[in-house]
C-alpha cells in the first residue's frame, strides 16, 4: 500500500496576485478563529462577581496566564498577556483541530508557524529599537566582539526559523507517524489474514486500527500539542521580555 505524506490540500486558487491558494490550512485557520471567538463569547457572556462553574474555570485559566506572563516577563510586561494568550490558544486549538479529521492541523503547515515566529521576531526588533534606540540595536550585533557580527546576524535569522520548524516539526511529525502507524496496522491486518482466500481477506476491515492509535494520539496530539504551544509561547515571552526590561533598568542601559 502507499502512504503519501503531503502538505495541505489545495481546494482552489483565486486568480489574483499570481494565484491565492485556498488550502486546508486556510480553512482550518478560519475554523479555529470562529471556534475560539464563539467559545469566548459564550464563556464570557454572563460574567458576574459570583461566578458559575464555567466562569471559575475560565478565570482560573486567565489567572494562570497572567501569572505565567508576570513570572516570565515581569509585572511591567503584563500588557503582552492577551497576545501570549491568543498565541497559545491559536496554537493549541490549531493543533487539536486536526483530531477532528475534518480539518487539518494549522500548525502542521510551516507557513503558519513561520508567520507566528516572524511576529515574535518583529515584536522583539520593534521593542528593542523602541526601548534602546536604533543604534543600540545595531550595536547589539557587534557584541561581545566585532568578529561575532556574522554569527549574531545568523542567530537572529535562525531564531524565528528554529521556532517555526520546532513547532511545525513536532505536529507534522506526529501526523506522519500516526499515518505510518495506521498503514502499518492495516498491513498487519492483511498479513495476519493472508491465509484466507484473497476475496475474504480483502473484505476484512483493518481491525487493528481500532484502539491502538488512540493512545498515540494522546501523546502526539494532546501532549505534544500542549507542550509545543507552551514552548512557542514561552519562547515568545522570553524574547520579548529581553527587549523590554523593567523601566529602571532600561534607563540605565540607554545611558
Amino acid at each position: 500500500m502507499d502512504i503519501s505524506v503531503t502538505g495541505p490540500k489545495i481546494y482552489f486558487e483565486i486568480p489574483l496576485f499570481g494565484g491565492i491558494k485556498i488550502t486546508q490550512t486556510t480553512v482550518s485557520l478560519l475554523a479555529v478563529t470562529v471556534l475560539l471567538i464563539v467559545a469566548a463569547y459564550f464563556l464570557t457572556r454572563n460574567l458576574s462577581k459570583r461566578p458559575g462553574r464555567a466562569q471559575v474555570i475560565v478565570e482560573k485559566l486567565i489567572t494562570m496566564l497572567y501569572n505565567l506572563v508576570e513570572d516570565t516577563m515581569g509585572k511591567h510586561n503584563l500588557v503582552f498577556a492577551p497576545y501570549i494568550g491568543t498565541l497559545f490558544l491559536s496554537s493549541i486549538a490549531g493543533t487539536l483541530i486536526g483530531m477532528t479529521q475534518i480539518f487539518r492541523s494549522t500548525t502542521s503547515d510551516l507557513s503558519v508557524t513561520l508567520a507566528w515566529a516572524l511576529v515574535t521576531s518583529v515584536m522583539v526588533w520593534y521593542h528593542t529599537i523602541k526601548n534602546f534606540g536604533f543604534k543600540a540595536w545595531l550595536k547589539g550585533f557587534t557584541e561581545p566582539i566585532v568578529v561575532m557580527t556574522p554569527m549574531n546576524i545568523v542567530s537572529e535569522i535562525a531564531q524565528p526559523i528554529s521556532m517555526a520548524f520546532r513547532h511545525f516539526g513536532n505536529v507534522a511529525g506526529g501526523s506522519v507517524l500516526t499515518a505510518l502507524i495506521y498503514g502499518a496496522l492495516a498491513a498487519l491486518t492483511s498479513f495476519l489474514f493472508s491465509w484466507l482466500p484473497e476475496a475474504v481477506a480483502a473484505a476484512i476491515p483493518p481491525i487493528f486500527q481500532v484502539g491502538i492509535p488512540a493512545f498515540l494520539s494522546i501523546y502526539f496530539d494532546l501532549f505534544s500539542g500542549f507542550v509545543q504551544a507552551l514552548v512557542f509561547s514561552l519562547l515568545t515571552m522570553v524574547y520579548i521580555a529581553g527587549a523590554c526590561p523593567p523601566p529602571a533598568e532600561r534607563r540605565e542601559e540607554s545611558k
Binding site: T6, G7, I20, T86, D109, A172
Partner: peptide, 24 residues
C-alpha cells in the same frame, strides 16, 4: 492537488497573520 509537505506559502502566512490579528 497538494502543497509541499515542508513549504512556505506566502498567502497562507498572510491568512495566519490576519487570523492572529483578528483573534488577538
Amino acid at each position: 492537488t497538494f502543497e509541499a509537505f515542508v513549504g512556505v506559502n506566502f498567502w497562507t502566512m498572510i491568512f495566519a497573520w490576519c487570523n492572529l490579528l483578528i483573534l488577538y
